[in-house]
Each structure stands twice: as structure tokens, then as C-alpha cells.
Design a protein around this nucleic acid. Structure first.
Lengths: 381, 381
DNA sequence: CGCTTATGTTCTCGTTGAGAACATAACAAG
DNA sequence: CTTGTTATGTTCTCAACGAGAACATAAGCG
């Protein structure tokens, strides 16, 4: 590490602070935050302004003292595109430094990988010189960020390199549940947590381990298939090829199955919503299905807490409904699955706050993560 | 980050390189390794030598070129004490920079926390001014590095602060299985792995997730109780208070139980060894017990691989025997538990190479980790 | 014995962030 | 309206850092 690296290092820290700040940072505030002098901050910011990365505007004066400036994303600075590709639809948004986001376009698709050509055309329509990176969330495991394995779409080992044209911008592709967790860690309820878990419950369960605000990816970037651990003692065979998976007992497929329906992917989601509504209206049969789901959910969470010791566990998707309707049952089942000595300090189980667009938010963050690095900044300056 | 920090930063990198090197590093080699100039290396090393952290001795000349020096631990430099505290015995060793280790003393104990006074006396006997930190491995979960919960010793919530005298040196306490994993990651078969798992199989299973060579501890430093996840569908109640734990089907207790014995802690270990020998001698009943253990082990590993996507999984303790006797069964069960699309690239399952003293080795590493930091070095210089 | 090779040593240089002194723009109090 | 207070911006000096070049040195090789 040389002394030239030092400058870049501090500039990345500064950019990261600007990006992560909840409210726009002032230059003086940033200096305090990073523990650097006002003079140094001026120099660093000046260089970043000249590189069109941040833009200084006079700040509203607040109390005494000489007015300072606000550090805002530069109007002609880099942009990140965020994509959320689901089973039958996709959404394209642009995200500025700092997280401000605007949806650009969205569409449906025919459940073939042909959708990527469509998406590529959309990206191309909105592409400008400002585009620096693309983050893409996809509902399924993606090995090495390239090979899609989405059983229920019949995508066996779809190679993204075959479908993303040669002139695609720099792109990082990741699993949607993982990115939803990343979103909670960066801009949601897991903010500041050193060790946390997030689970997105839809047809089945996907999730991620979050350490110091970063989503763990594993060796082949396919970590997070917590739903495919046999945590609930079910003997059923799972679509994934294994047996007894947790997802067989939690999620909309499990709800449908519990009511004697035939679980599928796509149709199951609306059915599950119906079951939820029936349960809220007091239907006993639907209520029992929800009960079973909640118990299985809690059971699995307890087991995972034993292994990974998170300080908090956040849920999204159907998990939020389950938490609203059956928090006590979930917590009780979780406590039962915890080792006895841990039961007096169980992990908090909390509803995610980022909302429906969590994968999109996470995709944007993942995109920015590829940019807010020393190597990127070094060539940009 | 200031420019003075830069010097310390590079010096820590240098020390770390010296500590981690398999064979003693030469000064020129270290410069190449860190990507710094020979002049800079000379300055850094000179300062470290003056601080009695490394010692330069002329290196054997190897081929052409001006002879260089070897970077060795300084004869009056800091030392780390490593402790391994088991159910009925303890071992104290001293470890030098670079990993060289010498056992100083060991003893039995009466299964009460009184052992810590004994150990403290031993530490005091060997303590010199060179002692910089102590790493301690304990066979059980330790919340916040302080509160011991070891059910089978009847230690419910033993507070180490009550048993480690006021004048104890700076100490880091950690779980033995986790430290065994750390040892494999630093000086064993997991060296260089970005994402790996290690499991120590004894009475039950403990383990750790290793990311970039560091053992993950969780929010309360009690992560790693993988053995207390219900991965095998057992309905039995576990001593830990939960139900269906993996450890009920894997480990020496499980072996004993499979043969109709009454599992206990302590006695079970020898019984398990007997069973192993009988199985090796062709005893069918013992063989079946081993079969069951192997199948349950593999089943759990597959599930965990789905969730955490390790590039390798190493085993120690009884795991090494199981791997020797039933590798195929373990791998087959693991594959069955893997999601189908992952079966063509399963995680490697490998025997640990650090051996019996892995917890001690890991304890030493953990001790050194508290020292090889910028803050420690800053005040040392 | 001279050539090659790898390393140690010395010196200069550009860059970095710290720190102090001063300038400036708001507010507050009389 | 003036003066003092406060927080920040700006400028300049300075010590320290690592890079790089030039040179010195100690080995092996032919």
C-alpha cells in the first residue's frame, strides 16, 4: 500500500459515506465522520467534484457558524441500473449515488431466457454515458454469477453469457432473496447489524447471511438456499431434488399443499394470498394452514440461529404476513428450536422495511458496490 | 486514515506475512510479497527489529545474488500462550510468532470451574514479560467470550470473569471446534479457502464457517452449533433442550446409542473408539452403526452446503475416522442432500491435517490475531 | 578474473494528511 | 446597528511516507 493509494482509499470512504448517508451529508459533517481535517476534506471533495462524482451545493444554514456545503450526487455523475427479473416480469430502474431511484421501464415475459434480449433492449434505450454498472436480481440460484438454475421455469443451466449481448455494460447478477437481504442491511431494518439473517418467503424460502452489512455469497455465489435444508422433518420429496426441505413446509406452495391443493409456481402465489385473506376472516381451515406455516418457519429459524447466532432475523414476502398474523407462534417455535441456554436472548425476528422493491434496491446496492472501490475510482480520477 | 497509519498498516502486513509464512521469509521475499520496494522493506523491518518483533539473521545463500536475511521471530519478542481446556484435562503451550509451539504443562481436572485457578497458577508459573496474549479453547459454547454453558459438566452459566483472576493477561476465549477450524484455515487443509466449513466430531458436532481464513463468531460469539440443527429427522430429545438434533445421529454418543448403549459424555469417547475398532475388524453390528453415522453425517453436510456453499468441508475428531472408513457413504449421502443442480460440483469433504492439537493451534492463532493489529503495534512501537 | 545476478543502501522527490493561523459568513446579544 | 460568538472555509508550512534511481556489495558462474 503506497501513499498514493491512501488518497484513493480516503476518497472511497468519502464516497461510501455520501452513498450510505440517510440524509445528505455536509462537507464539514463528512470530515467529522471520517475523522479527517477540514482542509483534507476540501481537497478530497474538490477532486471528486472535478471527476463529476459529487456535487457541492450551498447548504441551508442551520444555526450559527459559517455555512457549509451539501455533498450531492453529481448531475452528470455515474449511474447504476437496477434490474429485477421475476418469473413473469421484469423491472428496470436507475439509481443515483445516495440511493435515489426511479423506475424506467417494466414488462412481462414468456418464461424463456429470451427475456434477456428484451431487457437488453430496454437497457439500451435508457443507456447514456453516465451508466457505470448494472445490478440484476434474479429469482433463482445463479452459479458464479452466470449460470441460472431455475427449475420451475425449466431453465436448467442457462448461461447468461449467451443471452447478455457482447456490449452489455458491466453487470453483477445475484439472487433476489440475497439482494433483498442486502437491501435490508443497507437501507432497512438490518442497518448496522454485525451478524444477521434475512429470509424472503415466496413459493419457497431463500435468504442470506449478512455480515457487517454485506451479503455472503459462498464459493460459487450460490449460498443462501436455506429453504433446502431439512429443518422440519418433512419426508416429502422437493422439486430441488433433495428430500424434506424446509420450503416444503413454509411458503405459498406449502400453504396450498396444506389445503390439499396442488402446489405450483406462479399460480400458487395468488392462492396463498387467498388463504391469507380467508385466515384473516376467521376461516379455521385456512388458519390451520397458517399455523402450520408459522410453526415450521419458527422451527427452522431456531435451528439456524443455533448455527449462525444472528443478532436479528428479518423476513420479507409472505414472511411479513406470517409475522403479522402469527408472531407468537413463530417466536414460540423458534424458542423451542433454540438450545435451551440461548432462550433468554433469542434473536429478534422482525419484518423487513424496504418493501416490495427490496430486490431492486439490493440490485442497485450491488451495482454501486462494484463502483465504490479503489480500483474503479483510480481509473476514474 | 492518516499517512502515519500507513506505516503501521504496512508493518502489520509484514508481521502477518512473517507469521503466516510456511517457511521463514527472507527480507527480499517479503518485499516482493507485499509489493513494496527493497528500501521500504529495509526501513520497516529495521523498525520492527528495534521493537523486538522480528529478528534478522543472515540467510543461507541460495544461488546467485547478494545474500539476504531471514526474518525470524525475535528471541525476546512477544509470546502467546495457548490453552486447551477439555472436559477432564487442560494443556498450556507457548507459541512464537510464526507458529512454533512448545507445550509447557498439562493437567487433569475435577470437572469444576475450579480448574481455572489451577490453570491460572500454571500460566503464572511460566509467565514472563514476553507474554503478550493468551488464547483459550474450551469445549463448549461461550457467550460473549465470557459465559460458559457446558451442560454435561453441569456448568450452567459460569462467568469466566469470576474465575480468571484480576491479573490475568489479555485473553481471548473461544470454542474448541471453532478454533480447530481456524487452525485448519490457517495452517491446515483449508488454507487459502475463501469459504469453507469445518466440523469437529466428538460426542457431538461443533463447527465453524470460515470466510477468508477467519472463523465466524456470530453476534454473541456462540455461532457454530451446527450439531443442534434438526438435519436428520431424528425425533429424539437432545440434551441441549431442542429436538431432533444432528448430533443425536452423528458422533460418539450416536454410535453408542446405535448399539443400544447409554450415551454419556466422557465415557462415550472410549466406547466409540471400541466400536470403530470392531467395525474395522469386520463386526457387522458395529459396521452398521458406523454406516448410520456416515449417512447422517453426509446428509447434514449436503444440507449445510446448500445453505452456505462452501468450497470445502474439513472434518476433525471422529470425522477423520468416518472419512477413512466410509468416505463413499458420506459423499453419497451428501450428494443426496444437495440440490440436484449442485451435484456435479459438490464441496470437497476432506480430513483435517492439523491433528489432535488443532484447538491448541487455533487458540494460538486467535491469540496472535489480537496482537497482529494496527492498534497493538502502534503502542508497541 | 571478469561477468551476471540479486540484494542492500543511500539519496532525492512527489504526495499525503496534520496542524496552525487566518478569513469568512452566519447567528446572537446588547 | 454593532460587536462578539461560533462553525466552517482557506492557506501555508511541515513531518512522514513510499517510489524510484543510482550505486554498492556479495555471492555464483564460466
Amino acid at each position: 500500500m503506497t501513499s498514493a493509494d491512501l488518497r484513493v482509499h480516503n476518497q472511497v470512504r468519502l464516497l461510501r459515506a455520501v452513498h450510505d448517508a440517510e440524509a445528505p451529508l455536509t462537507r464539514a459533517g463528512a470530515a467529522r465522520l471520517l475523522g479527517i481535517g477540514r482542509n483534507t476534506a476540501a481537497a478530497l471533495v474538490g477532486e471528486l467534484e472535478r471527476a463529476h462524482l459529487v456535487h457541492e451545493v450551498p447548504a441551508e444554514t442551520a444555526g450559527r457558524g459559517r455555512p457549509t456545503t451539501l455533498l450531492l450526487p453529481h448531475p452528470s455523475g455515474p449511474l447504476v441500473f437496477a434490474l429485477d427479473v421475476r418469473e413473469d416480469s421484469w423491472t428496470l430502474a436507475r439509481a443515483e449515488l445516495g440511493g435515489a431511484r426511479e423506475v424506467l421501464e417494466s414488462g412481462g415475459h414468456d418464461r424463456t431466457p429470451g427475456v434477456f434480449a428484451e431487457i437488453g433492449a430496454a437497457v439500451e434505450r435508457h443507456r447514456t454515458g453516465r451508466l457505470a454498472a448494472v445490478g440484476m436480481a434474479i429469482a433463482g440460484p445463479i452459479r458464479d454469477g452466470r449460470l441460472l438454475h431455475i427449475a420451475h421455469l425449466g431453465w436448467d443451466e442457462v448461461d447468461l453469457d449467451d443471452h447478455l449481448g457482447r456490449d452489455w455494460p458491466r453487470t453483477v447478477v445475484d439472487n433476489d432473496a440475497r439482494l433483498a437481504g442486502l437491501a435490508e442491511a443497507r437501507r432497512g431494518v438490518l442497518h448496522g447489524a454485525g451478524c444477521a439473517l434475512h429470509f424472503h418467503i415466496d413459493f419457497d424460502i431463500g435468504g442470506t447471511l449478512l455480515l457487517d452489512g454485506d451479503a455472503q455469497r459462498g464459493a460459487h455465489r450460490i449460498a443462501g438456499e436455506f429453504g433446502h435444508m431439512p429443518l422440519t422433518g418433512s419426508g416429502l420429496e422437493c422439486m430441488c431434488g433433495a428430500r424434506g426441505c424446509w420450503s416444503l413446509d413454509v411458503g405459498s406452495n406449502a400453504l396450498v399443499r396444506h389445503l390439499g391443493g396442488k402446489p405450483g409456481y406462479g399460480t400458487g402465489r395468488e392462492l396463498a394470498q387467498q388463504i391469507l385473506r380467508r385466515a384473516e376472516d376467521g376461516d379455521a381451515e385456512a388458519g390451520a394452514a397458517i399455523d402450520a406455516n408459522a410453526a415450521a418457519l419458527g422451527r427452522g429459524l431456531g435451528a439456524l440461529a443455533n448455527a449462525l447466532d444472528p443478532e436479528a432475523i428479518s423476513l420479507s414476502g409472505l414472511g411479513i404476513d406470517l409475522l403479522r398474523l402469527r408472531r407468537d407462534a413463530i417466536e414460540a417455535a423458534c424458542a423451542e428450536g433454540l438450545m435451551a441456554f440461548r432462550r433468554n436472548t433469542p434473536p429478534q425476528i422482525i419484518a423487513g422495511t424496504v418493501g416490495e422493491q427490496a430486490p431492486l434496491t439490493g440490485a442497485a446496492e450491488a451495482g454501486w458496490d462494484t463502483i465504490l472501490t479503489e480500483t474503479w475510482l483510480r481509473e476514474r480520477l
